[in-house]
Structure formats: C-alpha cells, structure tokens
Write a protein that binds this DNA or RNA. Sequence first.
DNA 1: ATTCTGACGTGGG
DNA 2: CCCCACGCCAGAA
Length: 110
Amino acid sequence: MVKDLGFFEKVYQVTALIPYGRVTSYGAIANYLGSPKSARMVGWAMNASHNNPDVPAHRVVNRKGLLTGKHHFEGTNLMQQLLESEGVKIKENQIQDFEKLFWDPQKELI
DNA sequence: ATTCTGACGTGGG
DNA sequence: CCCCACGCCAGAA
C-alpha cells in the first residue's frame, strides 16, 4: 500500500501525465492539487524532480507560457530544445500559441 | 522551534 | 500590455 503521497509526489504524478507536445502551468497543477495558492511549491517540486526522470518538467511553464525555469536545466536552452523537439514553437523564451497548447489537468484529466 | 527561500499568481496602478 | 508589492506554503538549514 502506497503511503500518503507528499505534495511533491502528487506534482510528479500530474506532471507525468502531461501529453506529448502539450504544456501546462505551475498554477494549473497547484489548482488541480487543490492548492491554488501553492503554485510556487510546484516550481519548488520541479526543483527536486531531478530524481524523477519521468517528470517532464520542461512541459511546465508559468502562466504566461514563459520558460522561466530554463536556467535550471543543463546548458542554456535545453528546455527549449526539448519542447521544440515535441513541436512546440518558442520565441524569446515565450511559447507560441500557448493557449492552444495549454493542457489543464482540471479540465482534461477528469 | 524559527527563518529564509523560491522554476508563481494575483491585484492595483 | 508592463511594473510593483504582497501572499502563499512546503522544505531546507
């Protein structure tokens, strides 16, 4: 029996469900977890997601579709490369057509 | 226990 | 749209 999943674990679970080529925001995940005010914690969780290779942290950006966490990836544009390899267009750290690619767990993951 | 931090979000100007 | 200030809360030291 799995013990009570911590906040981080939950974040990983949801993040791992983000479809290929889609993106979501820290706030959306936090909202889905029932803590809309804990968006920062989602980012913090991403910071600790280095142990979880299954967590596509590059598909999580801030509410503007800006790659604010790219500096936490190796190199200077690994995050962008990963996204572009999935067909996501990025210009100046800004995801193009962010609204179209946005994946809201609360709506899609009923 | 206390203090600080942060890959955010919102509201006001 | 931009900029600024504040709240938020789990984890680390």
